[in-house]
């Protein structure tokens, strides 16, 4: 199994620069970083990848058993880091990938220098007993799963193998709409379940890596209170509330996002 092929890893930027690994969240693929990573390419070695089942990854590597928890996705991340022998890594994770980075840094702290967590949430469901507000009830998550089943974004069982196997042949994807977020519905459903039903609150305190929490000022998916919770429980972290709204500041406000990241990375 070629890890780099499996996760459609693309490497660019300054070859001898400090590596920055970008992990996309639930929904689309590494294109999510298209407005962000060029800002770091001069100084850093840029590593982008797709979670298995997304973008240009090898969907045949997916199985419900292999990807049964966020820890399994963290394993992929660590395998990529190992495969490229990356050290002193700046990990940038969006949405659920932020938690994947948290888990990976916890398992191999020696590999990671900084974590940039964009819109992180350790727990999406409310937990009234613990006084925790994640933002969602179970019914909402079920509606999401319904939406996923109704929206085979750019997905076709006939075409999928062709597309997935040939990320470098854009003409194949031209016929399909919404190709940036194309996903096998089974993968999407599984990833959604893992994403929205996991509880990683207890993992936060185990992270030693210095972290930045980037929180949008109005985010349906990860409310500000959640960002504050993450910041409060990550031992060595700082919180930046962006002017940007929504869940994807990397897309909607890349400038502000990059500036906040650079400010964090620029600190000694």
């Amino acid at each position: 199994m070629n890890v780099l092929k499996r996760n459609n890893v693309t490497v660019s930027g300054r070859p001898d620069g400090q590596p920055m690994v970008f992990a996309h969240g639930f929904g689309c693929d590494q294109n999510m970083w298209r407005f962000v990573h060029p800002a770091f390419a001069d100084d850093h070695r840029i590593v982008l990848y797709d979670h298995v089942g997304y973008g240009g990854s090898d969907v045949t590597a997916f199985s419900v058993q292999r990807y049964a928890s966020l820890d399994d996705y963290a394993t992929d991340l660590l395998e990529i880091v190992e495969a490229l022998d990356l050290r002193d890594v700046v990990f940038v994770g969006h949405s659920v990938a932020a938690m994947i980075g948290v888990l990976a840094a916890q398992r191999a702290p020696e590999r990671f220098a900084r974590l940039v967590l964009i819109g992180p949430s350790p727990r999406y469901l409310n937990d009234p007993e613990a006084g925790y507000v994640g933002g969602f009830e179970r019914a909402g998550i079920d509606e999401l799963l319904d939406s996923l089943e109704s929206n085979y974004l750019g997905w076709s069982a006939v075409m999928a193998p062709v597309i997935m196997g040939n990320p470098d042949r854009p003409e194949l994807s031209e016929e399909l709409t919404n190709s940036f977020c194309r996903t096998d519905p089974e993968v999407a459903r599984q990833f959604a379940k893992i994403t929205f039903l996991s509880d990683n609150r207890a993992d936060l305190s185990k992270v030693q890596t210095r972290s930045l929490v980037l929180q949008c000022s109005s985010d349906v998916i990860a409310p500000v209170s959640v960002g504050e919770f993450v910041h409060a429980h990550l031992p060595d972290s700082e919180l930046v509330i962006l002017q940007a709204t929504g869940h994807c500041p990397n897309l909607s406000a890349p400038g502000e996002t990059v500036a906040a990241m650079k400010a964090f990375l620029g600190k000694p």
Binding site: G25, F26, G27, C28, N31, M32, R34, S95, F136, E137, A139, G140, I141, D142, E143, L144, L145, D146, S147, L148, N151, L153, T177, N178, S179, F180, C181, D219, V220, I221, G246, H247, C248, L251, S252
Partner: peptide, 22 residues
């Protein structure tokens, strides 16, 4: 609905930014 909102945030919105349409 709630599922739609999440879907909007995680799929529709990003698609608009990335390919200008959905």
């Amino acid at each position: 609905n709630i599922g739609g909102r999440i879907y909007y945030e995680t799929h529709l919105g990003p698609l608009l930014v990335m390919q200008g349409s959905a």
